[in-house]
């Protein structure tokens, strides 16, 4: 038991149950960003903190196996391109960069406010992935030798 990396069995069990709830809460904050406080920045940090919870409880080797790190890096790099694509579609439809080209809908509805919802989702993914990758790189950094393991 003690030779396994990470924390004790209790912490691991609680993490296994709670991490999905935290990720769900992060998505809730992101998807309601145009109605309630929060939005892409806050929700993205909540998702990054959930992944960080796994990293702290299970150790970095398990986390690297559990998550597809290459996929996360691709998400992180491509989200800014998605933002640009939304802007360019607005230019093609409405004549100006980042034009709000989707139907506005009615106020206080979930599917309202046009491009604000997709842009919130893009920013949420961007913030979550980039912050988690930084913490993962810091965890992989060997302090004594100063080299990646």
């Amino acid at each position: 038991m003690n030779k396994e990396p990470g924390m004790t069995l209790i912490v691991k069990t609680v993490t296994r149950i709670s991490v999905w709830l935290i990720i769900l809460y992060g998505f809730y904050i992101i998807f309601h960003g145009h109605l309630t406080p929060g939005g892409g920045f806050g929700g993205g940090v909540i998702i990054a903190l959930a992944l960080l919870n796994v990293l702290l409880a299970y150790g970095k080797d398990f986390t690297r196996k559990w998550l597809n790190i290459k996929l996360l890096e691709n998400f992180e790099s491509s989200s800014i391109t998605l933002f640009l694509i939304v802007g360019i579609i607005g230019m093609a439809v409405g004549g100006s960069f980042l034009f709000n080209f989707i139907d506005k809908g009615t106020l206080f509805n979930m599917l309202s406010s046009g491009t604000i919802l997709p842009l919130n989702i893009i920013i949420g993914i961007k913030v979550a992935m980039s912050l988690f990758l930084v913490v993962l790189a810091l965890a992989a950094y060997n302090f004594d030798k100063g080299d990646e393991q």
Binding site: G39, F41, A137, L138, Y141, G146
Partner: peptide, 24 residues
């Protein structure tokens, strides 16, 4: 300010990485 807070965290992480490199 909402965007400024996020940039602040990014620069803090970068400063931490630079400090660790200097310590090495």
């Amino acid at each position: 300010v909402l965007t400024s807070i996020v940039i602040e965290l990014g620069t803090t992480a970068m400063l931490v990485a630079l400090a660790l490199r200097l310590y090495e």
